Amino acid sequence: MGKKLIGNGIIESSRMILPEFRDAYLNEMREQERRGKPVLDEQEFQLIENILLESFHECTTVTLTVFNPFDDEVLRGVVTIIDKPNRKIKFVRSEEDYSWIQIEEIINASI
Rank of each mutant, 00 (worst) to 15 (best):
L5G: 02
L5I: 10
I6Q: 09
I6R: 08
G7A: 11
N8E: 05
E12I: 03
E12P: 00
S13E: 08
S13D: 13
S13Y: 05
S13H: 07
S13M: 05
S14N: 12
M16P: 00
I17A: 09
I17T: 10
I17M: 12
L18R: 14
P19D: 15
P19G: 12
F21T: 08
D23S: 14
A24V: 07
A24N: 11
L26R: 04
N27H: 14
E28S: 08
M29C: 06
M29K: 10
M29G: 00
M29T: 02
R30H: 05
Q32T: 10
Q32L: 13
E33Y: 02
G36T: 06
G36P: 01
G36E: 09
G36N: 04
K37T: 08
P38V: 03
L40R: 00
D41Q: 04
D41F: 05
D41I: 04
D41T: 03
Q43N: 07
Q43D: 04
E44D: 07
E44C: 10
E44N: 12
F45G: 00
Q46A: 11
Q46K: 11
Q46Y: 08
Q46P: 00
L47W: 01
L47H: 11
I48K: 01
E49R: 08
E49S: 05
E49K: 09
N50T: 02
N50Y: 02
I51E: 02
I51R: 00
I51N: 01
I51S: 05
L52G: 05
L53T: 10
S55K: 04
H57F: 13
E58W: 03
T60C: 12
T60F: 03
T61G: 04
T61Y: 05
V62S: 13
V62I: 15
T63A: 08
T63F: 03
L64I: 10
L64A: 08
L64Q: 07
T65N: 09
T65V: 15
T65S: 15
V66C: 01
F67Q: 03
F67G: 00
N68S: 12
P69I: 07
P69D: 05
D71P: 04
D72L: 01
E73G: 06
V74L: 11
L75S: 11
R76E: 14
R76K: 15
R76Q: 15
G77A: 09
V78A: 14
V78H: 10
V78M: 14
V78D: 12
V79G: 07
V79S: 07
V79C: 10
T80F: 05
I82W: 08
I82N: 12
K84E: 11
K84G: 02
K84Q: 09
P85K: 12
N86W: 06
N86H: 10
N86S: 11
N86Q: 09
R87I: 06
K88R: 14
K88I: 07
K88T: 13
K88L: 14
I89T: 06
K90D: 06
F91L: 01
F91E: 01
V92E: 08
R93S: 15
S94V: 06
S94I: 04
S94Y: 05
S94K: 04
E95S: 15
E95A: 13
E96F: 15
E96H: 09
D97M: 14
Y98R: 05
S99L: 03
S99V: 04
W100D: 00
I101W: 01
I101Y: 02
Q102W: 04
Q102S: 07
E105F: 07
E105I: 00
E105R: 04
E105S: 11
I106L: 03
I107S: 06
I107A: 09
N108K: 07
S110G: 09
S110T: 07
I111H: 11
